[in-house]
Design a protein around this nucleic acid. Structure first.
Length: 266
DNA sequence: ATGGTAGCTGGGCTA
């Protein structure tokens, strides 16, 4: 089972690249962030022609998420149940795909430490973590995949000292990320790459990609039992270097089948 | 510390 996540920075501008990538990498489920369109504007044939069901959430030209699956797509929840302004953001989708509970999110960017958008970002993380607990992340095979807009450690920033107190890398954001993990989730991409520096996003401006000045903002987390079944975890940085592609690289994991007779419930 | 680009939108904002 292959689960992918990709911030495409406009699904309409990226239809050709996403189609190529789906054909090449054949994910069973793909979580998409920054669709930058309404659910009705998501190009349906992109997914339907390849056998995927798709559900989307978002309000228009900014943000927006989608979840596409060819192994089933049921029990869908858009956003976080019960969230109220300013935390009722259309930035997450939860659904059951085959035997996996999948959550995708495009976390608020936060813009700048100390601002109102940054406070909303931190509060949204607390609420999202609570939603993960309520939905039972440790009770069934679960994957959380998306652009969480946090570089969780110094290994996830090209120049940690330069950005230590800045948006994406600040202490409060890293605490928020750690609190999300404390609901019972494992950062399986980091777990598969040891202490190597990793990036999933490179600023389009200047030569950030060419000089490998990037940040790891896109994440795939699983419950501990599923984490043991993860065979590979890949950040497809090559795709970031292709003409007319997104500023984020696609990421995916391959999950081995559960052993017969071994329950994943704990 | 600043500037650089891309996308949506039809000027400026967000990332």
């Amino acid at each position: 089972m292959r689960i992918a996540t990709w911030n495409v920075n406009s699904i309409r501008a990226r239809t050709e690249r996403v189609g190529w990538w789906l054909d090449e990498h054949q994910p069973d489920v793909i979580a998409v962030q920054e669709t930058r369109c309404t659910p009705a504007q998501v190009p349906g044939a992109l997914f339907a022609d390849r056998g995927y069901q798709v559900v989307a959430h978002g309000v228009g030209s900014r943000g927006g998420v989608a979840l596409a699956s060819r192994v089933g797509l049921v029990d869908v929840t858009l956003g976080i149940p019960g969230a109220v302004h300013p935390l009722d953001l259309p930035v997450s989708i939860s659904a059951t795909c085959g035997d996996l509970r999948i959550h995708t999110a495009y976390a608020p960017n936060g813009r700048k430490v100390g601002t109102e958008p940054h406070r909303v970002k931190l509060a949204w993380f607390a609420l999202f973590a609570a939603w993960m607990t309520i939905d039972g992340v440790t009770d069934r095979p679960t994957v959380v995949a998306g652009d969480l807009n946090i570089a969780p450690t110094d290994l996830d920033v090209w120049d940690p000292a330069r950005y230590r107190k800045r948006n994406l890398t600040s202490r409060p954001e890293r605490d928020a990320f750690a609190a999300l993990l404390e609901t019972g989730l494992v950062d399986v991409v980091r777990a598969h790459h040891g202490d190597t520096r990793l990036s999933s996003w490179w600023n389009r401006r200047g030569d950030f990609y060419e000089s490998d000045r990037g940040w790891r903002l896109d994440h795939i987390l699983t419950d501990p039992t599923t984490a043991k079944r993860v065979r590979t975890a890949v950040i497809d940085r090559r795709e970031r270097g292709v003409a007319r592609s997104s500023d984020h690289a696609p990421c995916y994991i391959d999950i081995d089948p559960a052993e017969a007779g071994v329950s994943s419930a704990r």
